[in-house]
Amino acid sequence: MAEKPKLKVVLLTGRTIEQGVGKELGKSTREYVESVSVCYMDPGDMRKLGVKDGVNVQVSTAFGSVVVKAKKSLRAPHPGVIYIPYGPWANVVVDPETHGIGMPSFKGVPAVVEPTDKPVLGLEELLKQQFGKG
């Protein structure tokens, strides 16, 4: 089997209106989970990786690795930058270092994206996997 392509990117996390609506509806709603278990990518980058809209990708950083759905960014072009909305999925891969000020590094984390066959975990599965509780 041919080596799967990988792409070095910078990971940003942040708000989206969908995440904003989702969190007000409730964290266990389908709307919320679907709004935060995604990764917005530059269409050019998606072509390079050979992934299509809605396909699962694995995002890995020095701090962890998580599977999310790739989505075509409406805010493109931003080659080399991926965007995961705030939420339990993003937290697996962000940099906890606070540099002595209390604020972890939620934006600008070096990451690698690759296509994967693994599924996107549901919230409960993710919690069980990460914390063994819930």
């Binding site: 969190k23 705030y86 939420g87 937290n91 906890p96 972890p104 990460q130």
Partner: peptide, 16 residues
């Protein structure tokens, strides 16, 4: 608030 969904995993782990 919902720190387990907002904090980096390592920090959330200690809360849990």
């Amino acid at each position: 608030s919902d720190p387990v969904s907002n904090f980096p995993r390592k920090a959330a782990e200690h809360i849990a």
